[in-house]
Design a protein around this nucleic acid. Structure first.
Length: 134
DNA sequence: GCCAACGTTGGC
DNA sequence: GCCAACGTTGGC
């Protein structure tokens, strides 16, 4: 079991929209590092959903329901998507500020490499964020 | 709206 | 294959 965090601008695709849709394919990744992380996702892996720009907080937990496949929005074979479904909404969103202040979360890419839109998390980091959000 | 970080592109 | 220029992302 692996753990990840994905970013989305609420303006473009929000957690609320995701809840409504029940399932979505995660498209729009056009960065090799993020793409490689997408490819590492296996069915059943858990994914934190982060709102960038507006909110700047982790809002919920999703899971991988289908592993990576060719991005249906482009014919460019370099890019892939995965299918995600919502699992649960965090009681309290965990803000970037909180994450930055937390000793256990100093190493995550969200802090260290702000622009990366799909990143792996260690189990402890995932658990920590979920704990902060409940 | 600005700017820093950083990835990508293209000229040499 | 290097590196400058450029574009994009995202925090502030």
């Amino acid at each position: 079991m692996n753990y990840f965090l994905v970013k989305s601008e609420p303006f473009k695709y929000s957690w609320q929209q995701f809840l409504k849709d029940k399932q979505t394919f995660w498209d729009g990744v056009r960065n090799y590092q993020a793409r490689n992380n997408l490819k590492d996702m296996k069915k059943g892996d858990l994914v934190l959903f982060y709102h960038s720009n507006e909110g700047k907080e982790v809002v919920g937990i999703a899971k991988v329901v289908k592993e990576s496949y060719q991005d249906p929005t482009t014919t460019d074979e370099r890019w892939v998507v995965v299918d995600l479904a919502p699992v649960e909404t965090l009681k309290k969103p965990v803000t970037l500020e909180t994450i930055k202040e937390d000793e256990q979360l100093q190493e995550i890419a969200l802090v260290r490499q702000g622009r990366l839109s799909v990143m792996p998390l260690k189990r402890e980091e995932f658990d920590r964020i979920v704990a902060l959000g409940s």
